[in-house]
C-alpha cells in the first residue's frame, strides 16, 4: 500500500514537471510581456533594465529551474499586469472557483447517479426515455450557450437570479465563501447548473450503462435466485459493482469541471481562477497563466491519486492481492 502510494507520488511529480515545462515553454514564447507593461515612451535602456529585473534575459533552462523551484514554494513570481505576487492573486481567486466546482460536482452527482440508476432499472419506462432524450441536450449544447440561455430566462426575463458575480461573500481567514449568504447562493445557482449539466449527463449515462451491464451478470441472477429483495439486489449488489468505473470518471470529471470553469466563469463574470486566466491571456501575463496551468495540473494529479486510493476501498480484489504481496 505504502509502496503503491510512493510510486504514484513519483509519477505525479513527473506529470507535474511536464505540465510545468509545457506551460512555461509555451507561454515564454507568446508575445513580449515588456510591451504590455510599459508605455510607448519607455526608452530601450529602461526596457532592458526591466527585462533584467524580471529575469527575462536569462537562458530558458535557468528560467525554468527557477520557475519550478519557486513554484514548489507556492511562489509564482510577480504578475506583469498587477505587479504583485501571483500566489496572492491565485489565493484570492481560488475559493470562488473551488466553491463553484464543488457545488457543480455535487449537483452532477446528486442528480446524475439517481437518474442513472432509475434509467438503468426501468429501461422501457417513459420517464427514462424522457431523461435520456433531454440528456442529449446536455451533451450536445456548448457550455457558453447553456449559460447564456439560463441568463436570458432566469436573469433577464424572470429576474429571479443575478446574471453575474458572486453575491456577498464572507471572509473566513484567507478563504472567502458565498455559501453563507442568500445573495451568494442565488449567484451560484446559474453558473453551477451550467457547469454541472454536461457532467450530470455523463454520470447519468455512465451509471445507466454500468447498471445494465451488472444486472446481466451471473451473481445478480444468483442473488435473485436466493430470494433477496429487489432493494438488496439492485442497491446492495448491483449498485456497488457499478461504483468503480463511476468513481474513476467522476473523479476525472472533477478535474475537468475545475478546468471547464474557465468558460462558465467568463460567461457569468465569476471572479475565480478561470476568469483570472482569461484576463491574463489577453494581457500575456505569463506568470499568472503558467501558475494557473500548473495548479490545474496539480488538481488533476491529486484527484487521480484519491481516485486510485478509492479503488482500494471499494474493490477487495485489489486490496487483498496487495496485502498478500506485501505479506509474502
Amino acid at each position: 500500500m505504502i509502496a503503491f502510494v510512493i510510486r504514484r507520488l513519483c509519477q505525479s511529480v513527473v506529470v507535474l514537471l511536464t505540465v510545468a515545462l509545457i506551460a512555461f515553454a509555451l507561454f515564454n514564447y507568446v508575445g513580449d510581456p515588456i510591451n504590455n507593461m510599459v508605455g510607448q515612451d519607455t526608452t530601450p535602456a529602461e526596457r532592458v533594465a526591466l527585462r533584467h529585473e524580471l529575469g527575462l534575459d536569462q537562458s530558458f533552462l535557468v528560467q525554468f529551474a527557477r520557475f519550478v523551484g519557486h513554484a514548489a514554494e507556492g511562489n509564482f513570481g510577480l504578475s506583469y499586469q498587477e505587479a504583485r505576487p501571483v500566489g496572492q492573486i491565485i489565493l484570492e481567486r481560488m475559493p470562488a472557483t473551488l466553491e463553484l466546482s464543488f457545488v457543480a460536482a455535487l449537483l452532477a452527482l446528486i442528480l446524475g447517479v439517481p437518474m442513472g440508476i432509475y434509467t438503468g432499472l426501468h429501461r422501457r419506462s417513459l420517464l427514462s426515455q424522457a431523461m435520456l432524450t433531454t440528456s442529449l441536450v446536455g451533451i450536445s449544447l456548448p457550455t457558453f450557450l447553456i449559460g447564456i440561455l439560463l441568463i436570458l430566462v432566469f436573469a433577464v426575463m424572470l429576474g429571479w437570479l443575478p446574471s453575474y458575480g458572486r453575491g456577498t461573500v464572507v471572509h473566513i481567514g484567507w478563504w472567502t465563501t458565498g455559501l453563507l449568504t442568500i445573495s451568494g447562493w442565488k449567484a451560484i445557482i446559474l453558473p453551477a447548473i451550467t457547469l454541472a449539466l454536461f457532467q450530470m449527463t455523463l454520470i447519468m449515462r455512465l451509471v445507466r450503462s454500468e447498471m445494465i451491464e451488472v444486472l446481466r451478470t451471473d451473481y445478480i441472477k444468483f442473488a435473485r435466485a436466493r430470494g433477496l429483495s429487489n432493494r438488496a439486489v439492485n442497491f446492495g449488489h448491483a449498485l456497488k459493482n457499478t461504483l468503480v468505473p463511476v468513481i474513476t470518471i467522476t473523479g476525472l470529471q472533477l478535474g475537468a469541471i475545475i478546468a471547464f470553469a474557465v468558460i462558465t466563469e467568463t460567461v457569468f463574470q465569476w471572479p475565480g481562477m478561470g476568469l483570472m486566466f482569461i484576463q491574463a491571456v489577453t494581457f500575456a501575463d505569463i506568470p499568472v497563466m503558467a501558475a494557473y496551468l500548473v495548479l490545474v495540473g496539480f488538481f488533476f494529479v491529486v484527484i487521480n491519486l484519491v481516485v486510485d486510493l478509492l479503488y482500494y476501498v471499494v474493490d477487495p480484489r485489489l486490496r487483498i492481492e496487495h496485502e498478500h504481496a506485501a505479506g509474502g
Binding site: 451471473d218 451473481y219 449488489h237 459493482n241 471499494v314 474493490d315 477487495p316 480484489r317
Partner: peptide, 11 residues
C-alpha cells in the same frame, strides 16, 4: 448455476 466463478458477488 453452472459457473461458480461468476455466481458470487466479488465485492
Amino acid at each position: 448455476f453452472q459457473d461458480p466463478l461468476t455466481s458470487l458477488n466479488p465485492l
